[in-house]
Simulated assay, not measured.
Amino acid sequence: MNITYKNTKEFTPQELQNLFLSVEWSSGNYPDKLAVAMQNSSTVFSAWDENKLIGLISIMDDSIMNAYIHYLLVNPEYHAKGIGKRLVTMTTNHYKEYLRIILIAYDKETGFYKNCGFEVGENKTPMFITSLWT
């Protein structure tokens, strides 16, 4: 296994659909929208096993102060290999001059993000208007 990493926004809808559905995220049912979303993201780092997209992290930013990690996902076949942590590290290095890097984590994933240096916000509640279930 030879994992490579890229800073690219170029993905086929099928590559994105395969990755997102591998983690059972409902957004994988909208591969054409995902392809546009990646194009419109500020930064996207991705992980590849040869020609197979196996992970990605996408970030939206305001160009100077705040960066929001929107997606971080790794195909379950590649979990526990340091890929997610590497994608987070690439992001925090890229945005090291920013004053805030933000994300919303599912409760079961907060331990991973704490290990990456994130802290749980006190007296804060994430809020959504969404039709996606994951």
Rank of each mutant, 00 (worst) to 15 (best):
M1F: 10
I3C: 00
T4P: 05
Y5V: 05
K6T: 11
N7W: 05
T8I: 00
E10Y: 07
F11Q: 01
T12F: 02
Q14F: 09
E15Y: 02
L16Y: 08
Q17A: 03
N18W: 10
L19A: 04
S22T: 04
W25E: 08
W25G: 09
S27Q: 14
P31T: 01
K33Q: 14
L34K: 05
L34M: 04
M38L: 01
M38K: 06
N40G: 08
S41W: 02
S41Q: 02
F45W: 04
F45P: 00
S46F: 10
S46V: 07
A47I: 05
W48N: 02
W48P: 09
E50I: 15
N51I: 09
K52G: 03
G55I: 01
S58P: 03
S58M: 05
D61A: 04
D62R: 03
I64R: 12
N66Y: 11
N66S: 10
A67I: 05
A67M: 09
Y68N: 10
I69L: 06
I69E: 06
I69S: 04
I69F: 03
I69A: 00
I69R: 00
H70G: 13
Y71H: 04
Y71F: 11
L72M: 01
L72F: 02
L72I: 05
L73C: 14
V74G: 02
V74R: 04
N75Q: 07
P76H: 03
P76Q: 09
P76A: 03
E77R: 05
A80D: 12
K81P: 07
G82I: 05
G84T: 08
G84M: 06
K85S: 11
V88E: 09
V88W: 08
T89Y: 08
M90C: 00
N93Y: 11
N93V: 08
N93E: 15
H94F: 12
Y95I: 04
Y95A: 10
K96D: 14
K96Y: 13
Y98H: 05
L99H: 15
L99P: 01
R100P: 01
R100C: 06
I101Q: 04
I101P: 01
Y106A: 15
D107C: 03
T110G: 01
T110W: 03
G111I: 13
G111N: 15
F112W: 00
K114F: 10
K114R: 13
N115G: 12
C116E: 04
C116Y: 10
G117K: 10
G117S: 09
V120R: 00
V120W: 03
G121A: 15
E122I: 12
E122W: 02
K124C: 14
T125W: 06
T125C: 02
T125V: 15
P126R: 08
I129N: 09
I129E: 13
T130A: 07
L132W: 10
T134I: 12
